[in-house]
């Protein structure tokens, strides 16, 4: 029994059918963790990208180093670090939040790069044209650069959301009851890992297929010339 739902081990099919609702409960957690981690990554990545763009070297350089460092170290270790080290400094978070935070930290290194590449991909001439029209730096950025960058940034971010989903099972090590952890527990208790783990694989395929399809649709729907912000 898990989440108050019993399983039926009489036949394989009955077993699979009875644990499906349990796995789906895990899937909800997986999706919640993905979305929360994604939003943290979007914010933190924006911060890192902005700091990297500051002309002052004492700010830009550490920001670049942190980005590289976060990109090159494993999510699992970053997660353990947050999980075991933060409490030493009086910050006690629930496992779920720690996990989502770790996802966000790891992926901020990737999203920072997406912001940078998206803005850099806007042709130079656009910025010059904006200047020729006497737009201020800020207005030029908001009205000329950003709308064009967004159409490049959004699909790339969508792909990272899919990647984050696939990394959520790592959170099982700090007891988050996402889909894989749920399946593992069912396996531990019934000595039948084959069915729950295979089902998790299939559910994952379904999830990423739908998500990737969503990203593709979004990509084709976005006007290639940019999105006006008003």
């Amino acid at each position: 029994m898990l989440f108050g739902i019993e399983w039926d081990t009489s036949t394989s099919w009955a077993f699979a059918w009875s644990i499906l609702p349990i796995l789906l409960r895990g899937m909800v957690v997986t999706i919640q963790a993905s979305l929360l981690g994604f939003f943290v990554a979007l914010g933190l990545g924006l911060l890192l990208a902005s700091l990297k763009g500051v002309p002052l070297k004492i700010i830009a350089w550490p920001a670049a180093f942190i980005t590289e460092f976060l990109r090159d170290t494993p999510l699992l270790i970053q997660l353990f670090f947050l999980y075991y080290v933060l409490p030493d400094y009086g910050i006690v978070l629930p496992a779920f939040l720690t996990g989502a935070l770790a996802l966000g930290v790891q992926y901020s290194a990737y999203t920072a790069e997406v912001y940078r590449a998206g803005i850099q991909a806007v042709p130079r001439g656009q910025k010059e044209a904006a200047r020729a029209l006497n737009l201020s730096e800020r207005l030029a950025f908001i009205h000329v650069i950003l709308p064009q960058a967004v159409v490049r940034i959004v699909p790339a971010m969508g792909n990272y959301l899919v990647s984050i989903m696939k990394d959520v099972p790592v959170l099982s090590v700090v007891t988050v009851l996402e889909m894989l952890n749920v399946a593992k527990i069912i396996g531990d208790r019934t000595f039948n890992y084959l069915i729950p783990l295979t089902m998790v694989g299939a559910l994952y395929l379904l999830l990423t297929l739908i998500a990737s399809w969503g990203v593709r649709v979004l990509d084709t729907r976005l006007p290639k010339r940019g999105i006006p912000l008003k």
Binding site: P169, K184, L197, T198, T208
Partner: peptide, 14 residues
């Protein structure tokens, strides 16, 4: 389309 950890556990346990 699936997660590495799912694959690892599948190969190890299932």
């Amino acid at each position: 389309g699936t997660s590495l950890l799912v694959q690892l556990f599948w190969l190890y346990f299932a």
